[in-house]
């Protein structure tokens, strides 16, 4: 097997790199390590930027394949490819301040993104009648909490009735904060465990499926 394809190499590399970061955390100001951390950080930023390019390439390849095969709704892929190339060319030639590029950004992309977000609310309202029902005690409690918080969040109600606001604040400050804090701590502990397992080479999911 090719040496570079050996999974152990990835595990060793990950272990060494992670140890550099861990040791540097406990030895701040130790110059050789600080410089190495800066270098690794810089690499990571470059890799992240490369990942965007890779994503773009992947999207383009998939779209071209679908167009060639005349897959279902292939014309959407053709449209995607056309717009992607158009924006890429305009931005690439004229830079990020090119007027035509900015027109697309400000008048199309910037307007469409929140519009899709708005649709979610429209759909939520239209199904609220059928789904948010008090079917048992558990849903009754959930509904009561949700509605109280919603009422407490209505801006002009806060002016006229402090009771709902106090109730909402209490829900936020006591039960909700408690749950979120517990959730955060559990997540952090989970991260530590996964980190240790990854460092020791037990967790290998990041490398993809094992070869049989």
């Amino acid at each position: 097997m090719n040496l570079l394809r050996k999974r152990e190499i990835s595990v060793y590399l990950l272990f060494i790199t992670s140890m550099v970061f861990i040791v540097q955390y406990y030895l701040p100001g130790f110059d050789p390590l600080d410089s190495l951390i800066s270098l690794l950080g810089n690499w990571a930023v470059v890799f992240s930027a490369m990942a965007m390019g890779l994503g773009l390439l992947n999207l383009a390849t998939n779209s071209v394949r679908k167009i060639q095969k005349r897959s279902k709704e292939w014309y959407f892929d053709a449209w995607l490819l056309f717009i992607m190339l158009l924006v890429l060319v305009l931005g690439g030639i004229g830079g990020a301040k090119d007027e035509r590029y900015l027109w697309i950004f400000n008048n199309v992309y910037q307007q469409l993104s929140p519009t899709f977000f708005g649709f979610a609310y429209l759909y939520m309202c239209s199904v609220a009648v059928l789904t948010f029902r008090v079917a048992n005690w558990e849903t009754a409690l959930l509904m009561l909490g949700g509605v109280l918080v919603m009422i407490g969040n209505i801006p002009f109600i806060q002016v006229y009735t402090g009771a709902f606001v106090s109730l909402k604040d209490w829900i936020f400050a006591i039960p909700s904060r408690g749950v979120f804090t517990a959730f955060r701590i559990s997540m952090a502990l989970g991260f530590v465990l996964i980190g240790i397992r990854t460092l020791l080479g037990i967790e290998r999911g990041y490398m993809g499926a094992e070869e049989s």
Partner: peptide, 17 residues
């Protein structure tokens, strides 16, 4: 670009990123 590592590197050495 990037996630945690970019925040971290920017935090310790802006000129690195």
């Amino acid at each position: 670009a990037g996630g945690d590592i970019s925040w971290s590197t920017f935090g310790s050495d802006i000129r690195a990123v």
